[in-house]
């Protein structure tokens, strides 16, 4: 048996059986930070089971300090998991070779500031094992993609936060990775910058790359993502395709010339009602109530009823989930 093979078997972890279905898959991923020689322990991530299907854009959400960055660093092998494991692109966490197929944008784009943009990207290309004769071309392309070709000769120390962010994206794209991991790509950018980065990400999506990005700017996530996962205080509280999660928030009926006699019967059933000129706008959340309201209205002789489904907002989903989770935790600690 060759040495390489030996190592392969040694590294094999029962938790990390190969799977064909997911680009990223973790089981019980846990990180505990020990401070003061273990007297103060902080659980940054606990028992994370994450599954990211291929060719999707995955939004990784969570309030500040939820453990998003720690999770990302564990996926990249920068931080060692305390327990649990996982596979990225069918390799165990921390595998060196697999990083050739991953592009990573760190949370704070801190790079060697003394280098010029082109120098820095060439350095990254060399580190990413891009073929020497392709390096120049790839660097040019990456600069083009992030629209920084005109500043290729400037030092990174002269760059603004947004430009650094773009350079960060450029260095993540250099080696044409299959998986892109972006940690807070939108923070610190002005609206045009954000739009540009969104455009870049949408382009990448069309090129069938898997993008895994963390953010707390929910509107962007809603716009870009196929799937999301919400992390709160180190635990994954919600995850799945975004359309399933958003679901419906109910139905909105617009009724013209509604008889005033119906109002008392309808009022307890609706979540909100509003009068606009001669129209009543009724919002009804629960399904049984929708049926009842509809019957009452048709029975009452209102003929002109318009109805349309209300889409849930990601904002609401996020807040609801986080609040519910916090409440649950509060109870747990009370009982415990």
């Amino acid at each position: 048996m060759s040495f390489e093979k030996c190592l392969y078997f040694v590294r094999q972890n029962p938790l990390t059986e190969p799977s064909d279905n997911h680009i990223i898959e973790t089981q019980g991923l846990t990180k505990v930070y020990n401070r003061w020689f273990g007297f103060r322990m902080t659980e940054a991530v606990s028992g994370l089971d994450l599954k990211v299907p291929p060719d999707c854009t995955f939004g990784f959400l969570g309030p500040n300090g939820a453990g998003k960055t720690t999770t990302i660093k564990m996926l990249l092998g920068l931080v060692r998991p305390t327990r649990g494991g996982g596979r990225v692109l069918d390799r165990p966490l921390g595998n060196q070779e697999v990083r050739k197929r991953i592009g990573f944008l760190p949370e704070e784009p801190a790079f060697s500031r003394h280098l010029k943009a082109r120098e820095f990207l060439t350095l990254c290309a060399k580190l990413s094992h891009v073929e020497p004769d392709e390096q120049k071309k790839r660097v040019g392309e990456a600069l083009e993609t992030v629209k920084l070709s005109h500043r290729a000769g400037s030092r990174l120390s002269e760059f603004s936060r947004g430009m650094l962010q773009r350079i960060g994206i450029a260095q993540a794209l250099l080696h044409d990775p299959t998986l892109l991991i972006l940690d807070e790509p939108m923070t610190g950018l002005d609206p045009p910058g954000r739009r540009e980065i969104k455009e870049i990400m949408q382009n990448l999506r069309q090129r069938e790359k898997t993008i895994f990005f963390s953010s707390h700017i929910l509107s962007d996530v809603e716009e870009l993502c196929d799937s999301i996962g919400i992390l709160n205080q180190g635990r994954l509280v919600l995850s799945g395709p975004i359309l399933d999660l958003l679901g419906t928030a109910g139905v909105e009926y617009t009724v013209t010339n509604m008889p005033a006699t119906l109002l008392p019967t309808i009022e307890p059933l609706v979540a909100g009602m509003q009068k606009r000129n001669d129209q009543w706008i009724l919002q009804v959340a629960e399904k049984p109530n929708q049926e009842k309201v509809r019957r009452i209205l048709s029975d009452g002789g209102c003929s002109d009823i318009e109805s349309h489904r209300l889409q849930k907002n990601l904002d609401d989903v996020f807040m609801e989930t986080i609040e519910a989770d916090n409440e649950r935790r509060g109870k747990e600690t009370q009982h415990g």
Partner: peptide
């Protein structure tokens, strides 16, 4: 401390 290491070590470099 300056976190420049993060960008470098996320590359396929042991």
């Amino acid at each position: 401390r300056e976190k420049t290491m993060v960008a470098v070590l996320s590359k396929p470099l042991g």
